[in-house]
């Protein structure tokens, strides 16, 4: 269908764009914003590096518990672009595998936070009254703690592991999405198409999940992409504090924590994981800002 539509109308106006073309249009707008394009391309690159880490890493065995006493703390050089650590493992390999952990953990944490936050916000916004008060006051309580502090407390309570750290981040993060979705739903609820659905006898849950949530999602996607960086940073912080990833996992925060001991004599140990964190967080922030501009009609220039 879309192919015939394209063939039939070589220069369609903005009202006649089919869905596929509108997505292409969105991509074009993203690439036109130079900072967002840099962010998007970097994120894509990081994802590819993480995906192909087993192929790209010079010494995949070093990602976890290999020990090479002869190669301890070598500076960057041929064979070891990022140098080696105190057990002689290749740091480039470990940082590369760290990207896998950070990206996967970030995605899981964000997805879990969305899975909790979005339905709660939608129900609060649509139901109003008692449920709205109950959900939003609880949300306020969770939000009143700084995210990192709350995540630290939860992670410490759950026990020290990567999985628990991810769970802790999700449990401290969902209220942001609840707030955004609720605000969207409260304004969408007054739109005539919601009233129309009610008059048609569409049950409340269908109105919420088929009409309200899809229409409320654009700002949530922006926030989630911006949060991706913060979540990775938080995970690194938790691992740095020793309550996240545990050795021998090559998590970036954990690498920095271990490298801290060799900071004055072996600069590369903390520098490269640090740069990896910086690059990833910056890339997601740029991408998120770009998405915000595209999805916001005021800055996009069209509906």
């Amino acid at each position: 269908m879309s192919s015939t539509a394209k063939a039939a109308s070589p220069a369609p106006g903005p009202r006649a764009l089919p869905a596929a073309a509108r997505r292409a249009e969105g991509l074009r707008l993203l690439l036109r914003n130079p900072l967002a394009a840099v962010g998007g391309v970097t994120v894509l690159l990081l994802a590819l590096l993480a995906l192909f880490a087993p192929v790209l890493a010079p010494a995949p065995g070093d990602a976890f518990s290999a020990v090479h006493p002869a190669q301890q703390l070598l500076p960057p050089g041929p064979g070891h672009p990022f140098g080696t650590d105190e057990l002689g493992r290749d740091l480039f390999t470990r940082v590369l595998y760290g990207a896998r952990i950070s990206l996967a953990a970030g995605a899981v944490a964000i997805a879990a936070a969305l899975a909790i936050g979005v339905p709660l916000g939608a129900v609060a916004g649509y139901a109003g009254g008692f449920w709205d008060e109950l959900i939003m006051r609880f949300t306020d309580v969770v939000l009143s703690f700084p995210s990192l502090l709350l995540a630290t407390a939860i992670a410490a309570m759950l026990g020290h592991s990567l999985t628990n750290a991810v769970a802790a981040i999700a449990l401290s993060w969902w209220p942001w999405y609840t707030r955004i979705v609720r605000a969207q739903v409260v304004s969408l609820r007054e739109r005539p198409f919601v009233e129309a659905a009610r008059a048609l006898g569409v049950p409340g849950w269908r109105i919420v999940f088929e009409h309200l949530v899809p229409n409320a999602l654009a700002p949530v996607i922006v926030q989630a992409s911006l949060d991706f960086g913060s979540v990775i940073l938080t995970l690194a912080a938790l691992s740095f504090l020793g309550i996240g990833a545990q050795p021998p996992q090559p998590e970036w925060g954990l690498l920095i924590n271990t490298g801290r001991n060799f900071f004055l004599t072996n600069w590369w140990y903390v520098t490269f994981p640090g740069l990896a964190i910086f690059l990833t967080v910056a890339a997601f922030n740029l991408l998120g800002d770009g998405l915000r501009e595209i999805l916001d009609p005021r800055t996009r220039g069209r509906v």
Binding site: P192, F193, P214
Partner: peptide
């Protein structure tokens, strides 16, 4: 059934 005043608003844009 009901037919609303504003057909643009009465249809889900998505």
């Amino acid at each position: 059934q009901i037919v609303f005043q504003d057909p643009t608003g009465a249809l889900d844009p998505r």
